[in-house]
Design a protein around this nucleic acid. Sequence first.
DNA 1: CAATTCGGATACTGATCAGTATCTTGGATA
DNA 2: TATCCAAGATACTGATCAGTATCCGAATTG
Lengths: 215, 215
Amino acid sequence: MPRLPLTRAERKHETRTAIIDAAARLFARKGFEATSLDAVATSLGLTKGAVYASFGSKHELIKAVAEQYSAPADVGPLLRADLPLPDRLRLFGRGVYASLQGTSRLQILLDFESAVYAMRNKRWARLIHETSSAGIRDLAARFHAVNVARGERSPLGAEAFFTALTVVVRGVVQQFALDPTALRQSALETLFVLLAGESDATGAGSPRRRSTRRQ
Amino acid sequence: MPRLPLTRAERKHETRTAIIDAAARLFARKGFEATSLDAVATSLGLTKGAVYASFGSKHELIKAVAEQYSAPADVGPLLRADLPLPDRLRLFGRGVYASLQGTSRLQILLDFESAVYAMRNKRWARLIHETSSAGIRDLAARFHAVNVARGERSPLGAEAFFTALTVVVRGVVQQFALDPTALRQSALETLFVLLAGESDATGAGSPRRRSTRRQ
DNA sequence: CAATTCGGATACTGATCAGTATCTTGGATA
DNA sequence: TATCCAAGATACTGATCAGTATCCGAATTG
């Protein structure tokens, strides 16, 4: 406990972020609607008043959480110009697997929860739809550029390909939340590699990779 | 309105199924928890008393709905011994697409809702897990037999293959609920065909198929 | 036809929720 | 040091929910 005396603005900002973090954890586990503001506050040793001192309504808190934690799976590997498409997809799948067990697990779960919430809330659906579809279009363009530069083609076309990727990621997240043992890392990587449309998806075909099992 | 005079047992059974059907519709749209028994009853011109005359608790109604409407995607096409794996997967994808717009739409949505509910309810998760994993094991065995008979292999192994299929279907259902226009039928079929691990997933390679668009 | 049974209505309980109004207290400012 | 202000506590409101208790009326049964 390093610094007890804090300026007011610091303290306010600190509780605000603490509330967002606590809400994120509860939202990820029980969903937006099933999580009460009371539960959020008491999980921090605070009361509902503290929440309403920082957020005008529950909806505003949800928006803040979704904004701060909105981090779809890391698509960096998919845009690497130095790797063939199957390898890029394998790396992407590896990243998804790592996310589901590491620090960004919360972000992925919240991304999923946000989608589920959108299924039952038209306004939220519109809110999400705009940003996400814009992001997909942008990613698809960059992805397409990389493929063209490499002389590769993706099945489905770049945009539909990313939509399909979103679909698979959401399914994977749900599967992991239901039964983390059902889909092993190797199978998950293979699943993503298959989306490249190459028949050699077993992993033996990647030239630089040895058969050493790390983990 | 053909038959007004009904025996008591008939009447009871009729309202019971009417309640299940109404609940199914509301559950599919708003989820188990967010749907009140009042809403279910009044959507039929009844009151909550009618519900509790047929079901001991909301949980029992949920179970009845889930039981009656539990219909995962039709896997029949996947077990056809007369078709190569890519064609089987294409047919399967076509079936999923048709379901999402036809009569079994409700069933698929409820299957998804059941999975989401399981993410937040350990007891429900166990309930679902047993039956579904048993079903997957059974299907996987039959699928494997067909593949062996045909001299084909599926990537991932039969069991992981079906798990992956479940993953993709759930993602597809969610995507359709969010934005039905984002994934076209052809793209969806291609997505499933890709899971066969064949590079020719465009559909032009299937020998018996003409280029006629049936719709 | 009288007694009984039961599907369903009515009317409650208690719990939980989002949101509001008001008070308290410790840091900020003079 | 004295005043002021806002972060947060306390205590409410009204709405909604699952579940319960009781009642009514029509079908069943003798």
